[in-house]
């Protein structure tokens, strides 16, 4: 823990630590929110560390800009564009949240409600994007928590037959390139290919844990967004009813839900990093 921290505080700011005051100049509610977020950060860290550990233990891992390359409307091969839009939506909702908190400090009820409604819309927009992404991965590409058709080549070679879409017989590939095993007529159709050493092999499914971890971690994050939206709605209603104005504490409740909402954004920074970039 922070052995340094307690000691140092004592020496540098003795007065606030002598009791009957708030040493961190924060109410207990705000402190609780911070410490709850700290513990939640450990929950997410455990997931991401588990993700990293399993990924390190695998010989191959699907390349994200191959996996996440679709756009709504049947557009393919536009790597990472969709998730960039999703990220924008979440960042924008974070920004509107900051504005709501600022209006709260000015005791401007209308402003708080306005910016909170925008935040809620941003949150719903993000959830919508996630829903589309999941639907595509599950429905069209047939990835699930127990199955991952995104494999990765471990050596250079040439395809012996085509898949009727992108790959034609005779196309060559390099080690490290990912492929999607197509699914139609109720089964997967892995393609045959010839490696440089002359062996004829078949495409194999990618590491299962990729699908499981993706759905699990983005799902857990999405659940946080979802519950955040619920809390935002409740608190926005309370703001509109004038409850917090009567409390006369600069809309501290809005500030607290704001912390939570930014935390959701913060987690997405790392989910974005490990799933979509690395």
């Amino acid at each position: 823990m922070s052995s340094e921290h307690t000691a140092q505080i004592h020496h540098s700011e003795g007065n606030h630590w002598n009791g009957a005051s708030e040493p961190f100049k924060a109410s207990y509610g705000k402190l609780m929110m911070w410490y709850f977020l700290l513990s939640d950060a450990f929950t997410f860290s455990a997931f991401l560390i588990a993700y990293g550990t399993l990924r390190f233990s695998m010989p191959t891992w699907p390349v994200p800009d191959f996996v996440f390359s679709g756009l709504p409307g049947g557009i393919h091969h536009k790597p990472l564009i969709f998730v960039t839009i999703m990220t924008f939506v979440l960042i924008a909702s974070s920004v509107t949240m900051v504005r709501a908190v600022q209006e709260g400090h000015r005791e401007n009820k209308k402003g708080v409600v306005f910016w909170m409604v925008l935040t809620i819309l941003g949150g719903l927009g993000f959830l919508g994007c996630q829903a589309w992404e999941w639907t595509t991965l599950i429905g069209e590409e047939k990835m699930s928590i127990t199955r991952n058709p995104f494999g990765t080549h471990t050596e250079n070679g040439t395809y012996l037959d085509g898949d009727g879409h992108d790959i034609k017989a005779g196309d060559s590939f390099k080690a490290g390139q990912s492929y999607l095993i197509h699914y139609h007529d109720g089964q997967f159709h892995p393609l045959k290919f010839k490696t440089e050493s002359g062996d004829v092999k078949t495409q194999q499914m990618g590491p299962k844990s990729f699908g499981a971890l993706f759905f699990f971690i983005t799902g857990f994050h999405g659940f946080h967004v979802f519950s955040g939206v619920l809390f935002l709605i409740i608190i926005a209603l309370n703001v509109a009813s004038g409850l917090y104005a009567r409390r006369n504490n600069h809309y501290e409740m809005v500030e607290k839900i704001g912390l939570y909402w930014h935390f959701v954004d913060l987690v997405w920074v790392f989910v974005f990093l490990v799933f979509y970039l690395l």
Binding site: I9, K25, L31, L38, S94, V98, V269
Partner: peptide, 26 residues
Amino acid sequence: AYFIVYYFMHMKYEVPGLVKSVLLPT
């Protein structure tokens, strides 16, 4: 992450003790 925590979550304007108590454990 730094930007979100320090500016959006207002960590920059909190007292150093609170900052340390939240960030050091990580």
